[in-house]
Simulated assay, not measured.
Amino acid sequence: MEAYQKNPTDKEKQKLYQDFDRWVTQRVNYPALQSELGKLMVVREELLLVLEYPWLPLHNNLSERQIREYVKRRKVSGGTRSKLGRKCRDTFASLKKTCKQHGVSFAKYLRDRLTGVNMIPRLGHLILKASGYQETVLSNGI
């Protein structure tokens, strides 16, 4: 799979799809394992999304790191008292993390938004720019 990510070709993509299908449709003598293999086939497209988008990582380490700080704070503080408090905490934690990822000061971003100055680009714009999606869309004329 890593070789495919470095040099994706249609031929290799088809081979990987076939290998996956052969692996999860094989018959085994263990009912529990057979059941699990069947579940993999149900989520086949999601599991093989990397074949359509080879730049996607093959692990979720980034996602795990994203929530680590949040989990520590929740343990120390004992959580929130209301659904609204939880929603506010989650929203601000997400904003803070996204700002940090894109090299933007969280405090300056909040000040920029609250004062209406709007000198700092919207986070959605920064995310699209970092993903390369805008360039892809513009070059394809979509």
Rank of each mutant, 00 (worst) to 15 (best):
K39F: 08
K39C: 08
K39N: 14
L40C: 13
L40F: 14
M41T: 08
M41A: 14
V42T: 14
V42A: 10
V42F: 08
V43S: 10
R44E: 14
R44V: 03
R44Q: 14
E45M: 07
E46I: 09
L47D: 04
L47Q: 04
L48G: 03
L48I: 08
V50F: 15
L51K: 02
L51T: 02
L51W: 01
L51S: 01
L51Y: 01
Y53R: 11
P54E: 10
W55A: 15
W55Q: 15
P57H: 07
L58E: 02
H59R: 06
H59A: 10
N61A: 12
N61D: 12
N61R: 10
L62H: 09
E64W: 03
R65G: 04
R68T: 01
E69S: 13
Y70C: 04
V71K: 15
K72M: 11
K72W: 03
R73I: 01
R74N: 04
K75V: 03
V76Y: 07
S77P: 02
T80N: 10
T80G: 01
T80E: 11
R81G: 13
R81Q: 13
S82F: 06
K83P: 00
K83L: 15
K83R: 10
L84C: 07
G85L: 04
G85A: 11
R86S: 15
K87M: 09
K87L: 11
K87A: 14
K87P: 00
R89G: 00
R89A: 13
D90L: 12
D90S: 15
T91A: 14
F92T: 11
A93H: 11
A93S: 14
A93K: 02
A93Y: 11
S94R: 05
S94C: 14
L95W: 02
L95P: 00
K96A: 13
K96T: 01
K97V: 04
T98K: 00
T98E: 05
T98Q: 02
T98S: 13
C99A: 05
K100R: 15
K100F: 06
K100E: 11
